[in-house]
């Protein structure tokens, strides 16, 4: 069995009286593609936000590579190696595609004010590295030709890919993708699938929230299903698909 990367231990989160997550526990192993699915409002994105430090959980803890993650400290989550994308793309709209990815390098670089002003050899070298790495990543996700366009001028699919490039720039061990295929057509989704598999083959663990059940089942090694903030099932796709609770959750609520 592959070694463990992330353990979520009884995570709970409430908003006012609404229980968005109730004692959700799951384990993600190194090098796998882990799917998190569930009907709308099941708490998938809430889990993401707790994982990446945007929300403070009401209970439970996260262990990443054996170390406890500090709650509500997004930059520390990024530093320890968790990168994410957002369900409704959050790029730096008035920065170019290249600059967006360069910002992703922030957490792995050091230059401060003095370095910026003096531009000593070390800073120059670091800047050059940032630039080169950002260009490589743009190539990797396939938006290199739009490097100098403002992020807001990119097409929807390109924006999704750019967001992945920015997340990869932080050198994550765990890449969390929040509905990356949302709004994509069949061929774009197919490209995305290749991209995600490539990322995994480079040794990065992927956590995937997705509505596109076909994509999840085809891509993921293991899948957890949330319903009303509770984990109802966690297993390989073939087993999950046959789980009666899962079928009920999907068919009971709405005809998907």
């Amino acid at each position: 069995m592959k070694p463990t990367l992330l353990i979520a231990n009884a995570i709970s989160k409430q908003f006012g009286g609404v229980k968005a997550l109730t004692d959700v526990s799951l384990t993600i192993r190194k090098g796998e593609i882990y799917g998190l699915i569930g009907p709308n409002g099941a708490g998938k994105t809430t889990f993401f936000n707790v994982l990446t430090g945007l929300y403070h959980p009401n209970g439970g803890e996260l262990l990443f590579e054996g170390y406890k993650l500090r709650a509500s400290a997004p930059h520390l989550a990024a530093q320890s190696g968790i990168a994410r994308t957002f369900q409704n793309i959050r790029l730096f709209s008035n920065m170019t595609a290249l600059e967006n990815v360069m910002v992703g390098r922030h957490v792995r670089t050091q230059a401060g004010v003095v370095g910026a002003v003096l531009r000593d050899p070390q800073t120059r070298r670091e800047e050059a590295d940032i630039h080169r790495r950002a260009e490589e990543l743009l190539h990797y996700v396939g938006v290199a030709d739009r490097a100098n366009d403002l992020a807001k001028h990119l097409s929807y699919g390109d924006q999704r890919r750019l967001e992945i490039a920015r997340a990869l720039a932080t050198e994550p061990k765990l890449l969390a993708l929040d509905e990356p295929a949302a709004g994509m057509n069949a061929s774009e989704t197919a490209e995305l699938r290749v991209l995600i598999e490539g990322i995994r083959n480079d040794g990065i663990t992927v956590l995937l929230i997705e509505h596109d059940v076909k994509l999840v089942m085809g891509l993921c090694d293991r899948v957890a299903v949330l319903d009303y903030g509770v984990k109802i099932c966690e297993d390989v796709p073939a087993v999950v698909q046959k789980n009666p609770k899962v079928i009920e959750a999907y068919l009971g609520g709405s005809v998907a």
Partner: peptide
Amino acid sequence: FVSIRLQDSRIGRAWVAIREDEIAAKACGI
């Protein structure tokens, strides 16, 4: 001179990133 140097640096990019989207900036480890 200092302004220009700062703008075109790691720190300057982080400032603009915060201006554009603070949450995304945090998620990038800033």
